[in-house]
Write a protein that binds this DNA or RNA. Structure first.
Lengths: 235, 235
DNA sequence: CGGCGTGTTGATTATGGTCAAGTTCTGTGG
DNA sequence: CCACAGAACTTGACCATAATCAACACGCCG
């Protein structure tokens, strides 16, 4: 949990428009920055949060990406979410003070950490931060509920299309190329996230490629006709 | 939004152990109660929250039940949640200040309402209320994420069994008979909630009946072997 | 009693899961 | 740099589950 002087503060962080300080005033951002700890770089596969562990902080991805995942009682893995830079993970721990799923790095990962005690104290005095945490939770809730209806109402290709389009949109917000990117997660992870098998993910990608909507080479994806993909959502 | 003197205050409400005041001190409960408005009785089918409307309050079911629902772009209805007495609805509105789904009464419904402005002001001074709202959001998030993995990993009977067992558990918390109850929602609503068709719900119920696990007469359900139902979740 | 909404049951079909065989990618060590 | 091994991915054949289409029964209202 070292913090060197060369590290960015929230105010000057490239992610400040996307991350927690998004709607905070300059003063609030400065105060929040004082509570943020910067973690050392983790390697791929490292576990930042463990299911069952006491929730002691919020974690924010600074660079790299992660998956929020766990195992069902039958041993099958599930993937609740993928986390890109600027996204906050571990919010579900507010339910009872314990995390219910793991947070695992998908590639070399840097992160920030906001100890819960300090967060609670800051929320007492910073109304903007209070609103922001509520907004984050509301957003995660809305997202989870939307995903749930999608999994139950949309077919395999529609779900994969939605996943790709959503990913593209999130990359765009981060000023990363939205039409040509590398998937940091395996087909299996995508499948577990969308409630499919990896074979179906593979086949659906193949169908998109045959239709000329995407170019696929291993984990590199190029969206050629995002509108055609988005149209699959209408069913 | 009338409030008569015969109405219960939060402190003496039978739901106080389940509802928002669950983890508040007596003092905090008393202060919260001052902010709570009691709505008049709505009839079945009435819409308490409309998708797209500005979020102006939190709503709590006091008696009766409701569904949180909406329509997909293809016109199909989906059901995000059913709300029992003591449960808070509309939390997803924290995302951007607007509701994304309707809240519809399934039977004659009474409710409480906490205007957002007053809630925010109270959260400034009541740390317990702050924690409680975060807990509620965390719980809804955890629930939505759990449901999502369930819809994608568990088969039709497993999902229906889970639904019945969960309903039973929630009724028990409210000191209502957990083994013999009336479903306030139609088969269609259950199907839309679980990502199934109403035929599949009907057939699965039929299978449970044949197995001797439940008694079904119209909307009246009697759980005979809840353990057998719960065992379906292991898959 | 009649009519409609709600629910049940049956026959058929289609989507995606399962099992299996191969191919490509990636990283490692000679 | 190449050879190799193991993982990740693709593709195919077959099958099971639940969706669809359809007919019918029940229950609740007038």
């Amino acid at each position: 949990m070292e913090s060197t002087s060369t590290e960015l503060s929230c105010g000057s962080c490239a992610l400040s428009r996307i991350c927690l300080p998004a709607h905070l005033s300059a003063r609030e951002t400065r105060i929040l920055a004082g509570a943020v700890e910067r973690g050392r770089e983790l390697q791929s596969g490292a576990r930042l949060i463990r299911a069952g562990a006491r929730m002691d902080a919020l974690y924010v991805v600074r660079s790299g990406s992660a998956k929020s995942c766990g195992v069902m009682n039958d041993g099958e893995e599930y993937v609740r979410a993928f986390n890109l830079p600027g996204e906050v993970a571990g919010l579900e721990g507010f339910a009872d003070g314990h995390h219910t799923c793991d947070l695992v790095a998908l590639e070399p990962l840097r992160y920030c950490r906001i100890p819960l005690g300090r967060l609670e104290r800051l929320m007492e005095t910073l109304p903007g931060l209070r609103r922001e945490v509520l907004r984050l939770l509301g957003q995660s809730l809305e997202e989870a509920q939307r995903m749930r209806t999608e999994v139950s109402m949309v077919d395999a290709r529609g779900r994969l299309a939605s996943f790709l389009v959503d990913l593209s949109r999130r990359l765009e917000r981060r000023n990363l190329p939205p039409m040509h990117f590398r998937l940091s997660m395996s087909r299996r992870d995508i499948a577990r996230h969308l409630g499919l098998t990896l074979e179906t993910v593979s086949r659906s990608l193949g169908a998109f490629r045959s239709a000329g909507w995407v170019e696929v080479r291993a984990r590199y994806i190029k969206l050629l006709q995002p509108k055609a993909l988005a149209a699959l959502l209408a069913h």
